[in-house]
Amino acid sequence: MQVTRYSEARPYEAPEHYGMACLRLQGKEATQTDTVWIGLSHLLPGGETSLKDAAVEKIYVVVAGEVTVETPTESVTLAFLDSCRLAPGEARRLVNKTNAPASILLAMPTG
């Protein structure tokens, strides 16, 4: 068993993420995983990512506040414990349009 305590989770830099603090909870340099890694991002009011795609599937779960997920064709605001899946190659932008901080979990393949 490999445990990552939130108090000991290490930050990581994510390109084109603004007004956000990202922590690695599982996978990559945090723990040994075979298929997936888990990150937690804290978005300040106005925090956002650029509209960008990834070659792999992404799953997001909001754990605090509200986060708007935008694709080239739609926009949805996710609240506490709402989730969404983005297909490989599907561009997305995350943005916190509120005046309160928000937090979102990310799960994606290690490869």
Rank of each mutant, 00 (worst) to 15 (best):
G27E: 07
D82K: 09
A21T: 15
A55T: 15
E48P: 02
V69E: 02
S50F: 02
A64N: 14
A30L: 02
L105K: 06
I38W: 00
I59S: 12
C84S: 07
T77F: 09
T49H: 11
V61F: 12
V95Q: 01
L106I: 08
T68G: 03
H42S: 07
D34Q: 14
A14Y: 08
H17V: 01
L25S: 04
T35K: 13
T73A: 11
E8P: 03
P101F: 00
V62P: 01
R85W: 00
K28T: 06
P109M: 05
L44P: 03
E66I: 10
Q32I: 08
P88A: 08
G65I: 02
V62L: 04
V95G: 00
L94D: 07
L43W: 00
L25D: 04
K52E: 13
A91K: 08
I59Q: 12
L94K: 09
R93M: 08
L81H: 11
R92L: 03
V56I: 10
A102F: 05
A102M: 07
I104K: 07
L44R: 15
Y12K: 09
R92M: 04
E8K: 13
K52V: 11
A91W: 02
K97R: 15
S50C: 04
A21F: 01
T110D: 15
V95K: 01
G19E: 07
P15W: 09
L23N: 03
T73E: 14
E70K: 13
P11T: 15
N99K: 12
I38T: 11
L25G: 04
K28R: 13
P45Y: 07
E90S: 03
T73W: 08
V67T: 09
L94G: 06
E57F: 05
P11R: 14
R5K: 15
I104N: 06
L23H: 12
C84H: 03
